[in-house]
């Protein structure tokens, strides 16, 4: 969790905002530091999480989360976090699964090429509020929706899936959905572009990360554009950022410590 980002977003761990669809997109740069922020933020706020991690392994997220002050392994053991490791599930699907064990694999739709219902069922089963935890805010985090396209899922299927997730998690359970989508500029990837535009349109909070137009710089790693789409009058605000080992510092454009 980056305190500076919380201040920018006006968020605190006491009462996280609900019914949000937060979209993180990255152009020509890595935006996963924002995802790690939300992961640790919602864990600290006591929400119950379902994390569909397609991009990296559990140990990767766990090492970073420890730097940010939360322990994913213990959160998983306590039942606060349900972690789906996409890389592991997919290799299991290819190499070790028998027809019987395959029925439990949330990624089994990749073999048949059908819709993403198994994954959706997995998520809703995880986030369904049970009797005692009615006050807890359920949160779904998906790391890199664009990987689904690489795995052969069509844009329409992904859009359907996200829509279902929003309907269940945001509306029905009063929770939040956080998605990361890697954008590829100048790559003529029409499918990814369409997906990005549609999800931008649906989002309530949009965090866009871009590399500097002038190229790589040691002291300014990129620009973050925050757009709140729920309030019509709000203008997007732009900050530059620098990533440190355990935190990220944000500053107004052109006000890096290196040039002052």
């Amino acid at each position: 969790m980056f305190p500076e980002l919380n201040a920018l977003l006006g968020a605190d761990t006491e009462s996280p905002e609900r019914q949000q669809f937060i979209l993180i997109s990255g152009h020509e740069t890595d935006s996963s530091f924002l995802l790690n922020h939300f992961l640790s933020y919602y864990l600290k706020a006591g929400c119950s999480l379902c994390f569909v991690a397609l991009a990296q392994s559990f140990s990767h997220y766990n090492v970073i989360a420890q730097k940010l002050g939360v322990n994913l392994a213990s959160a998983r053991d306590q039942g606060q976090l349900l972690f789906l490791e996409g890389l592991r599930s997919y290799t299991q699907l290819l190499f070790t699964d028998t027809p019987e064990t395959e029925a439990d694999n949330p990624l089994r739709f990749l073999r048949t090429g059908s819709d993403l219902r198994p994954l959706y069922d997995f998520i809703t089963a995880a986030l369904m509020p049970s009797g005692g935890e009615r006050g807890k805010c359920p949160v779904l985090i998906i790391d890199d929706v664009s990987l689904l396209l690489s795995l052969g899922v069509t844009t329409l299927q992904v859009l359907d899936f996200i829509h279902y997730c929003r309907a269940s998690v945001c509306s029905k359970y009063q929770g939040n959905v956080v998605c990361l989508l890697q954008g590829f500029e100048e790559s003529e990837d029409a499918d990814n572009e369409r997906l990005l535009k549609s999800l931008c349109h649906q989002s309530t909070l949009l965090l866009q990360v871009e590399g500097l137009v002038t190229g790589f710089c040691k002291d300014v790693h990129g620009e973050l554009t925050i757009t709140r789409r729920s309030q019509v009058r709000d203008k997007p605000v732009i900050y530059q950022y620098k990533i440190h080992d355990k935190t990220v510092s944000f500053f107004a454009r052109g006000l890096s410590a290196a040039v002052l």
Binding site: S146, L147, S150, Q182, D189, N192
Partner: peptide
């Protein structure tokens, strides 16, 4: 070119 971008992402 879309494939190249996806390969780089992976």
């Amino acid at each position: 070119k879309a494939i190249i971008a996806r390969v780089r992402n992976l």
